[in-house]
Structures are given as structure tokens and as C-alpha cells.
Design a protein around this nucleic acid. Sequence first.
DNA 1: GTCTATACTTCGATAGAC
DNA 2: GTCTATCGAAGTATAGAC
Lengths: 204, 204
Amino acid sequence: MPRTPTVSPDRILQVAAREFADRGYAGARVDRIARLARVNKAMLYYHFGSKKALYRALLLQVFSHAGQRLTAIADGPGPADRKIHDVIGAMGAFVAEHAFFPAIMLREVADGGVHLDRETLAALAALPLTVGAIVRQGVAERTLRPLNPIAAYFTMFAPIVMFMTGAPLRGQLTSRQLVDMSKLPPERFVEQLQESIRLAFTAR
Amino acid sequence: MPRTPTVSPDRILQVAAREFADRGYAGARVDRIARLARVNKAMLYYHFGSKKALYRALLLQVFSHAGQRLTAIADGPGPADRKIHDVIGAMGAFVAEHAFFPAIMLREVADGGVHLDRETLAALAALPLTVGAIVRQGVAERTLRPLNPIAAYFTMFAPIVMFMTGAPLRGQLTSRQLVDMSKLPPERFVEQLQESIRLAFTAR
DNA sequence: GTCTATACTTCGATAGAC
DNA sequence: GTCTATCGAAGTATAGAC
């Protein structure tokens, strides 16, 4: 996966990812995406048709990739408590590779999915579905305590998504000397979360 | 606190809360806020000066209120593990009273605080500061296990904020029969989170 | 304090030549 | 596939009468 794709559509998607993550659907500017991707606007519309279609193409791609990571773990062997640990780690790794992902996820939650079609929503739905499957496995095999799958999904993923998205805001609060929120690298946050979720979810 | 304030500025703030929560700063429309608040646009600008000033006034108000709730608990008597439980409950109650709050919080995290001034950022900073104080108390008195205060803050609040904000998206996923995420009322989610955080944070 | 009308800007999208 | 030029809609904000 090259850092600077030579093909226009790929380069557009890459720039669009940052633009939509940083500014949201309403705040994103097609002009800016085209300029940063070094294509003119007409070219962008030629490839994607509309701002909304570009947004959907991007989200479908990223949600599908994220879903595949989780599904691979859920469908693999091993006890559910181990899978929970691995799934949190996989999400942390996915965010490390795709820094724009958590902000997009956050914004789509806030927007209520209004810009998405059924296909993109289905790709998004794979995430809670996969976690739900692991939780049900764990409760059945008694490696996890009885948990509501939806509650478990939010309890394990919301912290990672909000922490990763919140880096710029933490930077502002820290640099303005309002709170010092600078001393926790992402990898350590993931470890701490894994430990908290292990204590919270494991049957005993 | 009347449901339909008679004074224009109050009514504008109330409508603006829903508009900014539903659509974000960039997506919010001053025209729509004015129309729904039954004032004309010139009146809105007369009272608040600009879209940004209106946004800041709203966020300053809501962050201050939320911060006061938490501070009251943190400064009160009792062991820290109990305060953690109460603070989660207080946040759940605050959201029940101000349904727009979690979406605003989520969007501001994603926007990186770019629309806020120092005063509003300070009001926001009170939240992690207060949780940090409770965590430090608990670690000192050995009612909580050693925890990074920042990690603790995100672990306990991110789930509540994302779950509450995500109601419309869950509704879409459920009604389109992609996942059934409809069977978990907010109060039960808060209880489940309190139990998970108790297990995750308590020293033993 | 309240209104109508409008100035000014920006945005998404397209026409049409090459 | 690629470009320049531009259109029409929509947005924030204000002027100026009452």
C-alpha cells in the first residue's frame, strides 16, 4: 500500500479520509479534497459522482476493512475472553494504521447514519455483530460473566474511539495549561483498557 | 425551568442545542435555529452576535452545568469507589435531562475544540480534572487499583457518551434489520456500565 | 427590541472544449 | 480522462425602517 498512490481515485480517497475525519461531512469541502489530491474538481466528480457518493465509498471501504479484522478473530479458535483482548488490540492496531478512522466513526454516530446507504450501514453493523458473537460464546462457555452484548460493545470500543479521536483536543487543553492530558501514549492506553475490560468482563 | 421559555435568548439556546447536537457546528443552520425559536435572524444576531458566539454560549452553559454535578460529588464525603459509581450515575442523569449533551460532547472531541475559546475549554477541562481527582483519592486510600486518570476518564465516560448519542444510528440499524440494537434502555446501560467499571477499577 | 430586504461569500455541481 | 470557467443554491451576516 503506497503512501502516495499514483492513481487518482486512490489519492482522492486518501485525502478525503483526512478531510471528512477532521471536519465531518458537512464541514468537508470538495474543493479542498480535490486540491490536496492534486486533481481538479471535475475529475473528482467524474470518478465519484457526488460528495455523498465519495463519502459512502470511503466509509464502505474503511468499515469493511475494520470488520474483516474483527471477524477473523471472532471466527478463529480460542476462548472468548482471549478474543475480547485480541479484538481490542486489533482495533488499536487498526487505528494506528488508519488515524482517520476513529473520528469518522465518532462523527457517523453523531450524524445518526443519515449520509449512509444500506450497504454502508451493513458494513458498519458487522462491528457490533461480531462483538456480540464473541460475548455470546463467552457467556455460553462461562469465560465471560453474563453481559448484554450491546453494552459490552460500547464499553470496550467507545473508550478507544474517543481517546484516539480526542488527541487534538487534549493537545489544546494541555498547551493552554488547563489540564495536562499529554502523558499517555496510545499503546499504553490500549493496554490499560485491555486490563480494565478483562477485569470487567471475565467470569470468576 | 419552563419547557418553552418565553424569553428569546433562552428559547434560542434551547433550539440551538438540538440543532448543534443533531448537525454539528458546520452543519447547523442559523436560519433554522431562528425559525424554530420563532425569532427572526436579525434578532438572533442582536442577542448573540454570531453563529460562533451562540455556539460558545451554549457550550459554556452546558459544560459548566455538567462540571458542577461532578464537582459536587468529587468534593463530597465518602470513598472514591463510591464516588466513581455516583459520577457515572450523575452523568447518566444529566444526559437524561439534557438529551443533546452527549452529541455535542462527541462532536467537540472530533472537532478538536477549534470553535471554542479559552473560557469554554476551561469549563470542558473540569470534567477530566474532577475524575482525575477522584481517581487519585482512590489510589491513595487503596479503594481503587492503580489507574491512569486519563485512561480512567475515557473508560468510564466514553461508553455513556457514545451509547446515548448513538440512539438514532441504532434505530436505523435496527429498523433496517441489520442488527437488533433496540433492547437496552439507557437506565439499564448505565447500571451495566457501573458494574463493569466497579469490577475494573476497584482494588482487591 | 423587532422586522424586511438584501449584500456578500462560499459551496456543490456541471457545461463544454480538448 | 482532463481541464477552465461558471452557474445556481444556500449560507452568514447586516443595513436600515419602525
